[in-house]
Simulated assay, not measured.
Amino acid sequence: MSPATAVAMVAAELVHQTALGFAVAFTPDKARVGRMRRITAAHLRLWRVPGPTAENIVLAVSELVANAIEHGCGDIELTVLYSCGEVRVEVTDGNPAPAKLTVADDEDVSGRGLFLVAVLAQDWGVSADGRSTWCVFGVPTRRS
């Protein structure tokens, strides 16, 4: 195969790797958690993300949005992108203090959200400015 043919094949493949996604900005209100879950679940169905993976992504959205409502400063933005076999969830809350993974005691009624995200997601982290928390999920390919 000539170098020109290889380049053309790579370029053609990149054209087919279109990202899907959405972003929603909203004011902090506990009622928004359920709404963001429903919006995310609807998009994941549209994108045909398999059930168990979609359920884990929706749970992560719920935890990250609830955390942003609890600890954020000002409006919140949820962004979900699906590209190249991965779904990336990012929640921006305006608070420069980065989200931190904690270990909750058995008696604690909260404090497990980021732990769940860390367990379910392929990877997670916080932006350099501390205002965004993100996680990534691998999406299994469909078998023929």
Rank of each mutant, 00 (worst) to 15 (best):
M1T: 15
T5E: 12
V7L: 06
A8K: 09
A8H: 04
A8I: 02
A8V: 03
A8E: 10
M9Y: 07
V10T: 12
A11C: 13
A11Q: 13
A12R: 07
E13S: 14
V15M: 14
Q17T: 12
L20M: 13
L20K: 12
L20T: 07
L20I: 11
F22S: 08
F22W: 09
A23M: 07
A25E: 15
A25I: 06
F26A: 13
T27C: 08
K30G: 08
A31Y: 00
V33H: 00
V33C: 05
R35V: 12
M36A: 04
R37D: 10
R37W: 02
R38V: 04
R38K: 10
T40Y: 02
T40D: 02
A42K: 10
W47H: 12
R48D: 04
G51L: 12
G51I: 05
G51P: 05
A54R: 15
N56G: 15
N56S: 14
I57K: 06
I57V: 15
V58N: 11
V61I: 05
V61F: 00
S62A: 12
E63F: 10
E63K: 03
A66D: 09
A66K: 00
N67Y: 04
A68E: 01
I69P: 01
G72S: 08
G72Q: 06
G72D: 07
C73R: 13
D75Y: 02
I76L: 01
T79L: 08
V80K: 06
L81R: 15
S83K: 14
G85L: 05
G85M: 06
G85T: 11
V87S: 00
R88K: 15
E90N: 10
V91Q: 02
V91F: 01
T92C: 03
D93V: 13
P96K: 15
A97N: 13
A97K: 14
P98D: 08
A99I: 02
A99C: 03
K100A: 05
K100Q: 10
V103C: 01
V103N: 02
V103H: 06
A104R: 04
D105E: 09
D108C: 01
S110D: 09
S110G: 03
S110Q: 07
G111H: 05
G111A: 06
R112C: 07
R112D: 09
R112A: 09
G113W: 11
L114Y: 09
F115S: 14
F115H: 14
L116Q: 06
L116V: 12
L116E: 08
L116C: 12
A118E: 14
A118Y: 01
A118F: 00
V119Y: 13
A121R: 04
Q122V: 07
D123C: 09
D123H: 13
W124L: 10
G125R: 14
G125D: 12
S127Q: 10
D129P: 03
D129Y: 05
G130H: 05
G130E: 07
S132H: 13
T133P: 00
T133F: 00
W134D: 00
F137K: 11
F137G: 08
G138C: 07
G138K: 14
V139L: 09
V139Q: 07
T141P: 02
T141F: 01
R142N: 11
R143V: 07
S144K: 10
